[in-house]
Design a protein around this nucleic acid. Structure first.
Lengths: 133, 133
DNA sequence: TATATAATTAGCCAAACAACTAATTATATA
DNA sequence: TATATAATTAGTTGTTTGGCTAATTATATA
C-alpha cells in the first residue's frame, strides 16, 4: 500500500499538482523553470520535485548544471492516473494561468531566468500584462 | 482544482484508503463497522468518513440510529479512480488483512459490535485466531 | 585551480492534520 | 417522557508538512 499511498500523497498538494500539470503540457522542464512557475524559493521547488520523483511519478536527468524533469512514462499506472487527472486539470483556472505563465517562461533563456531569480535585474521577462489598470 | 485536490487529499491517508478499499469489497458498511476495522475511536472514524463524503467519494444514508456508507457511484471520475486504485489495493497485505477482518465483523450483529465497543464484554466476536502460539 | 552557478540538503518555524476524550445531537424504546 | 445509544462535533495535543534562509554539492569556466 505504501507505494500507492506515496503517489497519492505526492499528488495531494496544490504546488505539486501544478508541477505535474505543467509537465503534461511541456515534455520537460528544468528546476529553475518550475521555481519560476510556482513563485517559491528554489529550495522549496526542489523539495516538491524530489517528492514527486521519489513517488515514481517524475523522472529527472542531469545535463551539465541543469536538471530536467518529466513525467515518468514507465510509472506503473501512469496512464490511469492521467485518464483521471488530465480532464480535471484542464478544467481549472489556475492551471490555465500556469500554462500561460509557462509560455512566457519558455520564451526566456534559462540563463536569463536564473539571473533574474538571483536578483540581477538584467534581461527582464516580458510580462504579458494587460494595461487596463 | 480544489475539488480534484480535495479528492486526492481525502485518499492520501492510510486509514481513509483502507475505508475506501473496504467499500470496494462490501457494498455498504456502517460507521461502527468502520470503527472496528480501523481500531480507532468512533470520533476518529467519523471524521475520516466525513472527509471522504465531503470529497464526494462516499455517500451516506441514515437508517434509524445507524449510518451506512458506500462508494458514491455518481462521483465524477469514480470509474477512473477505481481503474487505477483497485488493482493496487488488491496487491497489498494490509488490505487483504482488512478483508479478512471485515468478514469477521460482518459475521457479528451491529448491536453486538457496538456493545463490544462500549466495553460491555458480552457476545464476544469469534476471532479466527490460529492456535499455534 | 579559484570562482561562479544550478540544484540539493540542513535546520528552523508556523500551519495543517490525525488522534484522543468529553460534550452534543438524533433516534429508539422502556 | 425519561433513558439508552449511534454518530457527530468541540476542544486538546503531538506529529507531519510546506515554507523560508543558510550551507553544501556538483559542474562549468575564467
Amino acid at each position: 500500500m505504501d507505494k500507492t499511498l506515496l503517489k497519492l500523497k505526492a499528488l495531494a498538494d496544490r504546488n505539486r499538482l501544478r508541477i505535474f500539470g505543467a509537465l503534461t503540457q511541456y515534455e520537460e522542464l528544468c528546476a529553475c523553470q518550475i521555481t519560476e512557475l510556482l513563485q517559491v524559493s528554489g529550495a522549496t521547488a526542489s523539495r516538491h520535485l524530489a517528492i514527486l520523483v521519489t513517488a515514481g511519478l517524475l523522472k529527472s536527468r542531469k545535463e551539465s548544471r541543469w536538471v530536467y524533469f518529466s513525467l515518468d512514462e514507465s510509472c506503473d499506472g501512469m496512464d490511469n492516473i492521467l485518464d483521471w487527472l488530465l480532464p480535471r486539470l484542464r478544467q481549472f483556472d489556475q492551471i490555465h494561468g500556469d500554462f500561460e505563465v509557462l509560455d512566457g517562461i519558455m520564451a526566456v533563456s534559462k540563463e536569463d531566468l536564473c539571473r533574474q531569480q538571483r536578483g540581477e535585474a538584467c534581461c527582464p521577462v516580458q510580462k504579458t500584462e494587460t494595461t487596463d489598470g
